[in-house]
Computed example of a mutant assay.
Amino acid sequence: MRFGVSIPNYGAAVSAESLTAWAQGSERLGFDLAMVTDHLAQPEDVRRAYPEDFYECFAALTFLAAVTSTIELGTSVAVIPLRNPVHTARALATIDQLSGGRVIVGIGVGGNEQEYRALDLGFVRRGAMTDEYLRVITRLWGGGNVSFAGEFVTFDDLLATPTPSRPGGPPIWVGGSARPALRRAIAHHGTWHPVFPTLDGIDAGARQAAEMADAAGKPVPGIAPRIRLSISATPVPETGRPLGVGSVEQITTDLHALAARDVEAIVFDPVHHPFFPDAPPSRTGDVDEREWGTIEHLAAEIIDATKGTVRG
């Protein structure tokens, strides 16, 4: 099992120095993955959750590639319809080449209508746009001269450069828990990447994915959830407790439960997001340090990231 860290590319404390500290620290502790998240516009609805600086995810990944050497770098998740797919394909292929093949492409459809409106994009058709954009992106990753005629994208005789470092392109992780997300993961030989799921949700999604993959005659997608990380000195009540929240013993139990389900990776998110009940009003430097301290605590007492194992 591989372990990753969700690196905050947003907040009052975000800077070149903070990104470097989180990425290099994660690499030093033996984590396999460093993931950033995505909002391309910050209208009122987005500002309710993220009212401070928010670095563009592909630019942040480029920076992280330059300050690290071994850790894989990805998005959790990039909202695919917000960008022209020709741009997305080239940006990610460029980062993959510059990083030596270390990119993971976590994708989603997004759920904020105001953000779509700000970019003059249709919100209702975002699922269909995502499907078509993924076809464009993966075709361009194959290189050569490419033409495409679709409902949302049409172009003729584009030279697809650069090609990604990894043949066929970077791995695709599909966020979301609805049936279309599972279908996309299966269609693109990808990984299902539920964000803040419950164990019951993972079990239900895994069963549905297995049925859908069998019907399509394709491999069952792997599972790589992103879960919260909040370590308390004493146990918290089990009723309604999210995965990754509680005492060392409770979180260890969570991780053993995920390992028993053969998840291929776990991405830990220590940020107390504004939509959580215990969130601070601002991601200041002090908050940033406390959240990073939670990652160090995780590595010291709960997991051995260098071996991909859970302690206890």
Rank of each mutant, 00 (worst) to 15 (best):
F3P: 01
G4V: 08
S6I: 04
P8Q: 14
P8Y: 14
Y10K: 02
G11L: 11
A16N: 11
E17G: 05
A21D: 14
W22C: 08
S26A: 15
D32K: 01
L33V: 10
H39E: 09
A41G: 13
P43E: 14
D45C: 00
V46R: 03
R47S: 07
Y50P: 03
P51A: 05
Y55Q: 07
E56Q: 11
E56H: 09
F58S: 09
F58D: 03
A60L: 07
I71W: 05
E72Q: 12
G74L: 09
S76A: 13
A78D: 00
V79T: 14
P81W: 05
R83S: 03
V86T: 13
V86L: 14
A93I: 08
L98W: 06
S99I: 12
G100D: 04
V109S: 13
G110Y: 02
Q114D: 15
L119R: 01
L121E: 01
R125Y: 05
R126N: 04
V136K: 00
I137C: 00
T138W: 03
T138Q: 12
W141D: 01
V146C: 01
A160T: 09
G168E: 07
G169F: 00
P171N: 04
P171R: 05
V174P: 01
S177L: 10
R183K: 15
H188W: 15
P197H: 06
P197D: 13
D203Q: 10
D203K: 05
G205V: 04
G205N: 02
A213G: 04
A213R: 02
A216Q: 13
A216E: 15
A216H: 07
K218A: 15
I231E: 09
P235S: 12
P242T: 10
G244Y: 14
V245K: 05
S247N: 13
Q250R: 10
D254L: 09
L255T: 09
H256A: 11
E264C: 11
A265V: 06
P277Q: 06
D278P: 01
A279D: 10
P280F: 09
R283V: 14
R290Y: 05
I295P: 01
A300V: 02
I303F: 07
K307V: 03
G308F: 10
T309A: 12
